[in-house]
């Protein structure tokens, strides 16, 4: 009897947990569902106050997506985002691997202050520096091009990735490194052939976050680029799809959905890396 009662108590508890989790999951996912549904609705249904907004009643259409591909520079924006994200992420990753290893493992004068400096820049919000950076970009002759973003994105990627990688480098046992050095490997060889392979999860993590942060970046991309053909996907959709008339919601939602797809795909594929990177970056730091 006692065990039957405890089973019932456990079931009740589980039911309560799910009941409590449901509003959170609904809150988190509903906006995405709603954007998705909206992007397939006919305008007549979209702007009908009597229609139930939660699902599609008069048949799904792809007109809003057609509009994106035929009448806007959506594909160019996506291409720009891809180029900027991949290049900025790769450059930052190389710089951060070197810096992270140096800060985590080597002993020399000033290493502590360098670590602090990197940490401080990690906390500097982009919104503090976008005005002077827009001038720097001008002086470099990069204004209104995607290269303005390739140059400036490492300012937030490098501190973040360095900090993240430092945690991973610290987990590599010192003895392994010392063995390699005693065997006559140079320090650079030790880093590249011994330490780096052991920190691969950290590198993957930094690459994923780097790509995501670049793809999602908004204020620099909005400020430094004004020509439509040079915009990134996020800015192109938010700035260029809003036209004079009010009937643009369908294509706007279609753009938002499609421009999120690369991130969703990577996210679903590497979910565990995201979770561990998020907690490593914030908590270990």
């Amino acid at each position: 009897m006692a065990s039957a009662a405890s089973v019932r108590a456990r079931r009740l508890r589980a039911a309560l947990t799910y009941a409590n989790l449901t509003p959170f999951v609904f809150f988190a996912l509903f906006p995405f569902y709603f954007m998705f549904v909206t992007s397939f609705k006919r305008n007549a249904e979209l702007y009908n106050l009597k229609a139930v907004p939660f699902w599609i009643q008069t048949g799904a259409i792809t007109d809003h997506y057609d509009f994106l591909f035929r009448r806007t520079e959506f594909l160019i924006w996506m291409k720009n985002s891809l180029i900027v994200s991949v290049i900025a992420m790769s450059i930052s990753l190389v710089i951060a691997i070197l810096a992270g290893y140096s800060l985590a493992r080597l002993r020399y004068r000033g290493v502590g202050s360098f670590g602090t400096a990197v940490f401080i820049t990690y906390l500097v919000p982009p919104t503090l520096l976008f005005l002077p950076l827009s001038q720097v970009v001008n002086w470099l002759g990069l204004s209104d091009s995607i290269w303005a973003l390739v140059v400036t994105y490492p300012t937030f990627l490098v501190p973040f990735s360095t900090w993240l990688l430092m945690g991973y480098f610290r987990t590599v046992p010192r003895e392994v490194e010392e063995c390699a050095l005693v065997d006559g490997a140079s320090r650079l060889q030790t880093l590249l052939r011994i330490v780096l392979p052991m920190a691969v999860p950290g590198v993957v993590c930094a690459a994923l976050f780097g790509f995501t942060l670049c793809w999602n970046e908004f204020i620099y991309a909005l400020t430094f680029v004004s020509q439509s053909g040079n915009k990134t996907a996020v800015v192109g959709v938010t700035a260029d799809l809003i036209r004079g008339d009010i009937y643009y919601w369908g294509s706007l939602m279609a753009g938002a959905v499609l421009a999120s797809v690369p991130i969703v795909v990577i996210y679903v594929w590497f979910l565990d890396y995201y979770v561990s990177g998020l907690t490593a970056g914030a908590v270990k730091g």
Binding site: T212, F218, V237, S260
Partner: peptide
């Protein structure tokens, strides 16, 4: 998910 998707885009939603 809300933390991963580009904020500017989900804010459009």
């Amino acid at each position: 998910l809300p933390w991963v998707i580009p904020t500017a885009l989900s804010t459009l939603g």
